[in-house]
């Protein structure tokens, strides 16, 4: 497959085999709490005093039971939700709102139904002031990269779930964010499509080395994809443990499934989540 480079700056080109360039913090989350007003005077503490640093180029998953605030944490980094307390920073600057340096990919795809596939992918580029012809050329290249060549003029409704998510990923990659914020991106897909998209995502990440923050509730998915898994617990949402996944890259699913270290990670993390569950009860 042809390698398409979408980043003009040098740091994206780091060779995956020669290891990372010196780690620098991409995202810093300092004492972040989030309180939601429920009915009347009651409120619910969704996140309690979260502290977290994510290095540039790292693939980090957030894992936890539903209602642990993992998506909320992602939305705070996205700038979609303002934390009640504390501060979240990207590249050292406090986050005040959404911006093209942080691109979201949602479980619901959130494609614009009134635009065709190419129009969706071009949207961000046009928004950045890229000329139409160039935006179109880059859009076509991206669609080729995610395996959707020939679907440029289709409308989202005509695509399967997996294809829709590929379009959504291409739409986000188009404006070249430094951070990818993925909110259970493969949660609505069937098992087979899910595996294929996981592999494709790893392919793309190997080439572009963007920082990825990946929310999921599948332990296997988190271990398979990430450098680091953040395990959260519920009520109030807080970080329970951070597990470094020390598995070689590039990863092959077939090898890992037989790998005892991979299996152990999964078992250990599942236990951590289970313990959390008992605490709640």
């Amino acid at each position: 497959m042809q390698v398409v480079s979408l980043r003009s700056d040098a740091h994206a080109e780091s060779d995956p085999l020669s290891g990372r360039k010196p780690a620098s913090a991409m995202i810093e989350i300092e004492h972040v709490s989030q309180r939601f007003q429920t009915s009347g005077k009651q409120s619910h503490l969704a996140l309690s005093d979260i502290n977290l640093t994510i290095e540039d180029g790292a693939f980090v998953s957030i894992l936890g039971p539903s209602g642990c605030g993992k998506s909320t944490l992602l939305y705070i980094v996205g700038g979609f939700v303002q934390p009640t307390d504390g501060v979240a920073k990207v590249k050292g600057k406090a986050i005040t709102g959404p911006g093209p340096d942080r691109g979201p990919v949602f479980q619901e795809f959130a494609l614009f139904p009134w635009k065709n596939v190419l129009g969706n992918v071009m949207y961000g580029l046009r928004q950045q002031g890229v000329k139409k012809a160039e935006a179109e050329a880059r859009g076509r290249k991206l669609l080729e990269m995610v395996g959707l060549k020939g679907y440029e003029n289709f409308y989202p409704k005509e695509l399967s779930g997996g294809m829709k998510q590929r379009v959504a990923i291409a739409r986000t990659l188009a404006y070249d964010p430094a951070v990818l914020l993925m909110d259970e991106p493969f949660g609505a897909l069937d098992a087979h499509t899910r595996t294929r998209l996981q592999n494709d995502l790893l392919d793309i990440w190997d080439r572009q080395r963007k920082t990825v923050l990946f929310v999921t509730h599948s332990v296997e998915e988190a271990v398979y994809l990430s450098d680091k898994v953040i395990v959260m617990s519920r009520s109030p949402g807080s970080i329970k443990e951070i597990v470094d996944i020390d598995l070689p890259r590039p990863r092959k699913r077939a090898d890992l499934l037989l790998d005892a270290r991979f299996q152990k990670y999964i078992v250990d993390i599942e236990k951590m989540i289970d313990d959390g569950g008992k605490d709640d009860l």
Partner: peptide
């Protein structure tokens, strides 16, 4: 859908344009 709006905002759409573009 709130996430349509978020997607457009993340792509760099100014707030006042969201009304017409999304």
């Amino acid at each position: 859908e709130q996430k349509l709006i978020w997607s457009a905002m993340a792509a760099g759409t100014p707030r006042w344009q969201i009304l017409f573009k999304v």
